[in-house]
């Protein structure tokens, strides 16, 4: 795929996300699924129109997919659209995302393979991230996905995950920076303090690293690092936005909860694979 076509894909996804902002229905202790909203369905339809699916990476390659997932992360869109690239919902540690969805449940098994679980019984659980997490209670059988296809899908899915994490981190950091520039304390903006600049510089470096990985390397190591970096960045943002960042009304908590969940899932998936 030419750079031009990749660019077009990125801007098409960005437009779709921009037109369908994802609402956050998560509340402490409650079960929530951010793919179950009108906006999310409209986003799903818009993405389908531009060919956003597991087959996309076959033509466009993982780089384009990873780059195009960045706007999904920026908009904290439902992870269902990252998982579309895998061709189904990943099953990790006996948990499944979007338990009510009909996409295949794909268990990650050692050797980087995927097993399509059949006749699954999944029960919803209240979870720290509003991805409609369900507990896999029962499955009657499984079929293995062709190893070559599985490897390709997993690679594209990792690229999409890294892109999503980069987008999410970028927005968190920008919002934090905005706060620090406008927040005066001890006679000057917080952003003018060297110790704060140092921390922001660490975040920016980590973010830039993720952006470089998106277009160059989609190994498990890259994904593990990117998820950990997203946790570090959003944690730094929590520190730097003080009590405001701790409230439900400020958007940071949504990003930090998702980063943390993605870190836990990616690490376990990587261990299995």
């Amino acid at each position: 795929m030419t750079d031009e076509v990749a660019d077009m894909l990125v801007s098409a996804v960005a437009r779709a996300v921009g037109n369908n902002p994802a609402p956050d229905r998560w509340e402490p202790g409650q079960w929530a699924d951010d793919s179950m909203s009108e906006q999310s369905e409209m986003l799903g339809a818009a993405l389908e129109r531009i060919g956003w699916s597991a087959e996309l990476s076959d033509e466009a390659g993982p780089t384009a997919v990873g780059l195009a997932a960045v706007p999904l992360g920026k908009g904290t869109a439902s992870l269902r659209f990252v998982d579309s690239i895998l061709g189904g919902r990943p099953v990790v540690a006996g948990l499944v995302r979007h338990w009510q969805a009909t996409e295949p449940a794909l268990e990650l098994v050692s050797g980087g393979r995927l097993r399509h679980l059949q006749d699954t019984r999944i029960e919803p659980v209240a979870y720290g991230d509003g991805s409609g997490i369900g507990l896999l209670v029962e499955t009657s059988g499984s079929s293995e996905v062709d190893p070559l296809v599985a490897a390709r899908r997993l690679e594209a899915w990792r690229a999409a995950s890294i892109g999503y994490l980069a987008g999410l981190s970028e927005v968190a950091l920008n919002e934090c920076l905005e706060y620090l520039i406008s927040r005066e304390a001890f006679g000057r903006p917080l952003a003018a303090r060297e110790s704060i600049q140092g921390r922001l510089a660490d975040c920016a470096t980590a973010l830039e690293g993720m952006c470089l990985l998106v277009s160059n390397d989609y190994s498990w190591a890259s994904l593990s690092y990117s998820a950990a970096a997203a946790v570090d960045i959003t944690s730094a943002c929590h520190q730097l936005t003080g009590a405001l960042g701790f409230t439900l009304e400020y958007p940071l908590q949504r990003r930090s909860r998702r980063a943390r969940a993605m870190r836990a899932w990616s690490d376990w998936a990587a261990d299995v694979a």
């Binding site: 659980v125 720290g128 997490i133």
Partner: peptide, 25 residues
């Protein structure tokens, strides 16, 4: 991933860990 389950039998320490993790910042 199970660390973040907030409630029910599958939740480590009855969800205390999941709640702690989101409160600790």
């Amino acid at each position: 991933p199970r660390a973040l389950i907030e409630d029910g039998e599958a939740a480590p320490l009855g969800g205390r860990i999941a709640r702690f993790v989101r409160a600790v910042s």
